[in-house]
């Protein structure tokens, strides 16, 4: 029973057990790292999406509040008139753009500065206010803002 054969068998079983434990531990570590990485990805992605769409809505509503006259040209174009200049805010190529023109020039919704990435931008008039909706990465925000609508 306690011969060299059974000793070798016990050793083999023990080494196999330790190997199995090591493998289980390695697998668990791998799974934990994957889960942690996906959690980080989710939190970070959520931040990016929330930032883009919320910041776009906030930026537009703050611009409306600070402007003298607001005109909704189309569902994705907004014109803000002020003393000496006109601002066009529009949506194109998955982003919100802004372009400033001196007063007197006919503003066109092209070119300018890329402000935020947004898959969708919806600007409409409702209840005497401007309703702004921005969507990016599945995260959508809507806000109303009064403006001197023309």
């Amino acid at each position: 029973m306690n011969g060299p054969g059974s000793k070798r068998l016990a050793e083999t079983v023990s080494s196999a057990a330790s190997m199995t434990l090591f493998l289980i531990f390695s697998m668990c570590c791998l799974i934990i790292i994957t889960v942690a990485a996906s959690a980080y990805g989710r939190i970070s992605g959520n931040y990016d999406n929330t930032f883009n769409s919320a910041a776009a809505v906030r930026y537009i509503t703050n611009k409306i509040r600070a402007s003298g006259e607001t005109e909704v040209i189309s569902e994705s174009e907004l014109l803000l008139r002020d003393d000496g200049y006109v601002t066009v805010i529009y949506h194109s190529e998955g982003a919100v753009w802004e372009r400033l023109y001196p007063e007197g020039e006919s503003p066109v919704a092209s070119g300018g500065e890329r402000m935020f990435s947004a898959e969708k931008l919806l600007i409409e008039e409702s209840e005497g206010a401007v309703r702004v909706t921005a969507e990016d990465g599945g995260s959508s925000f809507t806000a109303y803002c009064r403006g001197s609508l023309s």
Partner: peptide, 8 residues
């Protein structure tokens, strides 16, 4: 945003 919309 919801409060802003309600206030407006």
């Amino acid at each position: 945003f919801c409060a802003q919309s309600a206030a407006e």
